[in-house]
Write a protein that binds this DNA or RNA. Structure first.
Lengths: 228, 228
DNA sequence: AAATAGAGTGTAAACATAACACTTAAATTC
DNA sequence: GAATTTAAGTGTTATGTTTACACTCTATTT
């Protein structure tokens, strides 16, 4: 028994803008739609909300279905509710964006869904209002990555300062000065310098670092803020 | 005929966080709920989405019902979708915030809805997750007001620099330096200084200004940004 | 032993932000 | 009509932040 009988009811979808990063740059996980309408067209991963789950839960479920990953950094972007946005039927979509480390995702599962990592700069025409969602997600990512330590979610647990810098350069789409970048990130004192070195990308080897949640909280509680 | 039969369908609400400003400070337009559940409790103004309207249209309709105002600055905050958020039934709510000039609102209409302007600092316990919406709305307002010229929507067309400063102080909840504030806002060259003076608040009188959209666009196109 | 390739490091100039106090104009009061 | 009141209006200096910039180091490969 409901208190709100007599009002229109709607299908609700969640769509996921899934960001990844590797040497080539910032990428999105997109798929070719396997059902009508718009079968065969490029699309974001999506799914319909179920009665017993929250929007956040639905987004996490949809993301896990595609990538096999749990406990991923996700954030709701906005709800998209234009009348004609989905020609299949009236659907309100809550768009979420996720930041993942590409290497963590389940390759087999991704392939099974006919999904592909596409360089952000090369994102094709997507169905419905998905391109608009993607553009807004990037804006949000840029703003948040500049003021909160969320970019680390795009990297492996351990990373070099050069990798970290490349990640931010890919997100902001402009180059950063190496010395200024290192000064800034190290002065905030949120990174832990490890004994280990990464030998992949240079002969000399570069020290590995990891983000330290505790140090970040200390920074905040002394009244400072994170900022790149 | 739908392509998406078999999926759960939901009631969708829009809830409006309506900001206003006057000499006393930043205020919210809240109402005492006139229907079950939670009848008599403080609440945001809300309404249910209709089949033939977009989310944005629904929010504008709900706001107009309460205030009589059209073409108001409104922005979607987020969709709130926790399972138990509304004990009346499962409802997904898209929260919108609006910035209006209190004096423009239709007093009779506001009273008819049993709505009241409440100082932000004195906002009572609200139903459901409405307090959470309000807190997020203020955060968003603060961030956006600091980087985009949206604060003017809280003021009358013509305003003095002191009024403008008071408005920003109310939004940010901290005092600003008069000389620095004036230097900054005038240097951006987005205000038009009028011949008229306001004689209400001082014996000497203070020049009135208005925000000039064209000047703002010029500022942006020369690569600068708005910022307080 | 020489060459290579990326890692790692400091300073100075330019710019932006923050702190600060008195004079002016008009109305009101005595 | 002189004195008082009230908010409006106005610049400069110190401090902090951001930007620009080039060479040495280390380990591997040739």
């Amino acid at each position: 028994m409901t208190h709100y009988s007599g009002y229109d009811r709607f299908n609700i979808a969640v769509d996921c803008i899934i960001f990844g990063f590797d040497n080539e740059g910032l990428k999105l996980l997109l798929l070719k739609r396997s059902f009508e309408p718009a079968k065969g067209k490029w699309s974001l991963m999506g799914g319909f909300l179920k009665e017993e789950e929250s929007l956040d839960d639905a987004a996490a479920r949809v993301l896990e279905n595609l990538t096999g990953l749990q406990n991923v950094y996700m954030e709701q972007l906005a709800a998209f509710g234009d009348v004609g946005r989905d020609p299949g039927d009236r659907v309100i979509s809550a768009a979420y964006f996720a930041l993942i480390n590409i290497d963590d995702s389940d390759r087999a599962l991704v392939e099974k869904h006919n999904a592909h990592w596409v360089l952000f700069k090369e994102v094709p025409d997507l169905i419905f209002d998905h391109n608009a969602m993607v553009i807004r997600a990037l804006k949000r990512l840029r703003r948040k990555a500049a003021t909160e330590p969320i970019g680390f979610n795009l990297l492996p647990e351990k990373f070099t300062l050069t990798q970290l810098q490349r990640m931010y350069e890919a997100v902001f789409q402009h180059e950063l000065d190496k010395r200024n970048f290192r000064k800034k990130i190290l002065q905030m004192n949120v990174l832990e310098k490890l004994e280990e070195k990464d030998k992949e990308s240079s002969k000399r080897g570069a020290y590995l670092y990891c983000f330290n949640e505790q140090k970040y909280h200390d920074l905040i509680s002394e009244g400072s803020t994170f900022g790149i």
